[in-house]
């Protein structure tokens, strides 16, 4: 066990955990940030996606010891009031079914739009294909990424 100091959503956190504990479980079990989901634990589904210094990262395979001083953003910190352009677009198009995959989907979409505010269809497809939605909401996800792009300055 060791003490880890983490910078998450602009706040300082501390966790006393084993060094190989994935960031996902530190967030969920130790810090009460449960918006980041567990789906596979092997970087296949994307439900656990957070931003590490702005880069979408699968927290289920990221040991807490590898986080270091990086800035972590989770779905709870994507926006102050739940009104990030992707959150607005996801709501407007009523994307979720069960909703379990959507935090991860939005984190990846938000990172994409930050880099590339007008992604092409092919770029959206290439990026979002790394996420699974068991409920099959891919069409609405596609449309929501495009809608969010129009809201992104």
């Amino acid at each position: 066990m060791a003490q880890y100091k983490l910078k998450i959503n602009g706040r300082d956190y501390q966790a006393d955990v084993a060094s190989d504990t994935p960031l996902l479980w530190v967030l969920r079990d130790h810090l009460g940030l449960v918006g980041t989901k567990y789906g596979c634990g092997i970087a296949q589904c994307g439900a656990c996606t957070v931003h590490l210094n702005g880069e979408p990262t699968r927290s289920c395979v990221l040991p807490v010891s590898a986080v270091g001083g990086a800035k972590v953003t989770t779905i709870e910190g994507l926006s102050e009031n739940g009104d990030h352009p992707v959150q607005q677009a996801w709501d407007e198009l009523d994307v979720p079914q069960c909703g379990y995959c959507q935090a991860g989907q939005m984190m990846t979409a938000a990172a994409l739009l930050k880099k590339n505010s007008k992604p092409s269809d092919a770029e959206i497809e290439a990026t979002m294909s790394s996420h699974l939605c068991r409920c099959g909401t891919y069409h609405r996800i596609r449309d929501a990424v495009k809608l969010a792009a129009t809201k992104t300055k």
Binding site: G35, K37, W90, P96, G99, Q102, A103
Partner: peptide, 19 residues
């Protein structure tokens, strides 16, 4: 077309699910 009543919670990562 009525949006899901839990959209806001789902989209901001509130604790909703069993896990």
């Amino acid at each position: 077309s009525i949006k899901g009543v839990d959209n806001q919670e789902v989209l901001t990562g509130k604790p909703l699910f069993g896990i």
